[in-house]
Amino acid sequence: MNILLWHVHGSWTTSFVQGPHTYLLPVTPDRGPDGLGRARTWDWPASVLELPPERLRTADIDLVVLQRPHEAALAEEWLGRRPGRDLPAVYLEHNAPHGAVPDTRHPAADRDDLLLVHVTHFNRLFWDSGSTRTAVIEHGIVDPGHRYTGRLARAAVVVNEPVRRGRTTGTDLLPALAAAAPLDVFGMGTEGLAGHLGLPPDRCRTQDLPQAELHRALADRRVYLHPVRWTSLGLSLLEAMHLGMPVVALATTEAVHAVPPGAGVLSTRPEELADAVRHYLDDPAAAVTDGFRARQAALDRYGLKRFLADWNHVIEEVCA
Rank of each mutant, 00 (worst) to 15 (best):
E271I: 10
V259N: 09
G244C: 12
L218W: 01
R269M: 07
H215N: 09
L173R: 14
T231A: 15
L273A: 06
L235Q: 13
D202L: 11
V248D: 10
D202E: 15
P182W: 09
G192N: 02
L177I: 05
T253D: 11
G198N: 06
P210W: 01
L197Q: 02
T253N: 11
V248S: 12
H226D: 15
A258S: 00
A258P: 00
A179R: 15
L174W: 03
L250A: 11
P210S: 01
P175C: 04
F186I: 04
H242W: 08
P261A: 13
P227H: 07
E271F: 09
H257S: 13
T231Q: 15
L233G: 00
A179L: 13
A274V: 06
E254H: 15
G262D: 00
F186N: 04
T252V: 12
R222W: 08
L183F: 12
L225Y: 13
L199D: 11
P227W: 06
T206C: 03
L218P: 01
P261E: 13
C204A: 14
A217W: 05
R216N: 00
V247L: 02
Q207R: 15
L199W: 12
R216A: 01
L243C: 01
S236L: 12
G189F: 11
S232N: 15
W230E: 13
R269H: 10
G195V: 09
G195I: 08
E272W: 03
V265Y: 07
P260T: 11
V265E: 02
A212V: 14
L193N: 01
T252P: 04
E191H: 12
V256L: 12
L218S: 00
A180Y: 08
V185S: 04
L209R: 00
A251T: 00
R203D: 04
F186L: 06
P201A: 14
T190S: 13
R269C: 06
S236W: 11
T171Q: 06
R203H: 09
L183A: 07
H196L: 03
P182R: 10
P260G: 04
P227K: 05
F186W: 07
E272S: 02
E239Y: 01
R222Y: 08
Q211L: 13
G198Q: 05
Y224H: 14
L177K: 10
V247N: 01
G170C: 08
P227D: 07
T171E: 03
V185R: 06
E272H: 08
H257R: 15
L225P: 10
